[in-house]
Structure formats: structure tokens, C-alpha cells
């Protein structure tokens, strides 16, 4: 049975939809499709795309390695501790990415909290590709943790208890029961994390800079092109179309994987 919606509510609902869709439509209308192939095959575009895919993939892998255990710790903590950990985890989510970038500079910059010690060993992180990966991980990690933690909490501990009474150790239970049980949340979280890393701009711009081939990812390339410093607005639009295409592809993938979501 479909629920009944008061007719009046359709008006704000449609406005809300328009707020999200119209800008994209306006962008797509403005595209000079003849120029797109040329813009996308330019050296700068390919360099930015390659860098973006590589850094986002590494950042996602890092987020997965630390995010899944963190999600498990939060999900199995006492109510109070879990609440505190969850609040900390969502900090990068509510923080403007620019502020995140400044914070990262003060942590890992040459005079930063850890950066000073690292500099002593000759390790410099800001304005390197590593900085891009760190900035992306910083903003993308909450997406993975929150998604996986929610799935873990929904799955509960009852299956794990059964596995234990059948003789499975904690590690075996984690591998063979817990992870498969939360697979949909795991995939959704990973994909969202990757999408967020791919689109990351603010923290990267401040912490990693905008050096072509080193730190100029797709969003930075679009910004540069749009401001006329690089190629042209057409190139910026073409690159934007590419990012939109990637984003839609990701959403479709999540939907087809998540069998628990009604279609």
C-alpha cells in the first residue's frame, strides 16, 4: 500500500527537487558537445583524471582499512562511548573542508604538531600527492564509518553469539559472519567514500595546493580552467560533465548492489 501524501506538500517537494536538479540541467544545456572529446583528451585533463582516480582509490583503501575496524569498535561500544565516538567521526562531515585543510596544515605542516618532527626526518607532506590522499581520507572517512557502523548495529550481535557457540573464534566470526552480514553497508560505504574523495576540493586546495600532475585533481583542474588560468571555460564544463557521469555511475552501482533497498 502506498501512503497518502497531503497534496499541498507536493509544491515544496517539487521545489526541493528542482533546487537539486535544475543546476545540473543548466550545466548540461551549456555544454558544447563538439568540444567535449577534445577537452577531455587534453594532456591536462588526462593528468587530472588519472591523479584523481589514483588518489581517490588509495584514500578509499586507507579509509577501508581503518574505517571498518573503527565502525566495529563504535558499534560494539557502550551507548555513551559510542555516542561520543560517533560525534567525533562526523566532525569532518560538518566541518567546512577549507577548515579541514587548515587543520591538516597545522598538524602536518612544516611547523605543525607532527609536521615539525617529520621535517626533522626530511619528510615533507604538504603540497605533495600524499597530502592529496590525506585530505581526501579526512573528508571521506566519515561516509564509510557511518555507513558500516549503521549496518553493524542493525545486524546486532546475535549471529556472532551463535558463531561463538559453534566454536568460531572472534577473528573467524568477524571474517565469516560479521563482514558478510554487513556487505551491503560495506559496499555502499566504500562507494560513497570513493565518490566523496573524488570530489574533494577545499581541504586539498589548502593542504596540497594546485600543482599540475602532483596535486591538481579533477575538482582543482575544473576550478583552474574555469578561472581562465588554464584552458577555457569549455574545458571546465567538459571536466564537470565527466565528474557528473562518474557520480551517476557510482550511484547506479550502489543501487544495484544494495538488494535491501526497494526499487
Amino acid at each position: 500500500m502506498t501512503g497518502r501524501v497531503p497534496r499541498l506538500l507536493y509544491i515544496p517537494a517539487m521545489i526541493g527537487l528542482a533546487v537539486m536538479v535544475l543546476p545540473i540541467v543548466a550545466l548540461l544545456v551549456r555544454v558544447d558537445w563538439a568540444q567535449v572529446p577534445k577537452a577531455l583528451t587534453s594532456a591536462q585533463a588526462i593528468s587530472a583524471l588519472t591523479l584523481s582516480l589514483q588518489t581517490a582509490a588509495i584514500a578509499t583503501a586507507l579509509c577501508f582499512i581503518v574505517g571498518v575496524p573503527l565502525a566495529l569498535v563504535i558499534a560494539r561500544s557502550s551507548r555513551r562511548l559510542a555516542g561520543a565516538l560517533r560525534a567525533v567521526t562526523s566532525l569532518p562531515l560538518v566541518l567546512p573542508p577549507l577548515v579541514g585543510g587548515i587543520a591538516l596544515l597545522y598538524l602536518l605542516g612544516r611547523t605543525g604538531l607532527l609536521g615539525a618532527s617529520l621535517a626533522a626526518f626530511g619528510i615533507q607532506i604538504p603540497f605533495t600527492t600524499a597530502a592529496v590522499v590525506i585530505a581526501q581520507s579526512f573528508v571521506a572517512l566519515p561516509f564509510l564509518v557511518i555507513s558500516v557502523e549503521g549496518a553493524l548495529r542493525t545486524a546486532g550481535t546475535r549471529y556472532e553469539a551463535v558463531a561463538a557457540t559453534l566454536g568460531a573464534s572472534r577473528w573467524t566470526t568477524f571474517r565469516r559472519v560479521t563482514l558478510p552480514l554487513v556487505a551491503p553497508g560495506l559496499i555502499a560505504g566504500t562507494v560513497l567514500c570513493f565518490a566523496r574523495a573524488l570530489g574533494e576540493f577545499g581541504a586539498t586546495a589548502l593542504f596540497a595546493g594546485n600543482a599540475e600532475g602532483v596535486t591538481r585533481t579533477m575538482p582543482l583542474a575544473i576550478y583552474t580552467a574555469f578561472n581562465g588560468a588554464g584552458v577555457s571555460q569549455d574545458a571546465a564544463i567538459a571536466l564537470s560533465v565527466l565528474l557528473i557521469a562518474v557520480a551517476i555511475l557510482i550511484l547506479l552501482l550502489v543501487r544495484s548492489w544494495r538488494t535491501d533497498v526497494p526499487r
Binding site: 553469539a161 551463535v162 558463531a163 561463538a164 557457540t165 559453534l166 566454536g167 573464534s169 572472534r170 566470526t173
Partner: peptide, 10 residues
């Protein structure tokens, strides 16, 4: 003894 080593089914 941990649940997995007790040989008690539930």
C-alpha cells in the same frame, strides 16, 4: 573459558 572453546551449543 571463551564461548567458542566451551563446546556448548545454544
Amino acid at each position: 573459558v571463551a564461548p567458542e572453546h566451551r563446546r556448548i551449543g545454544l
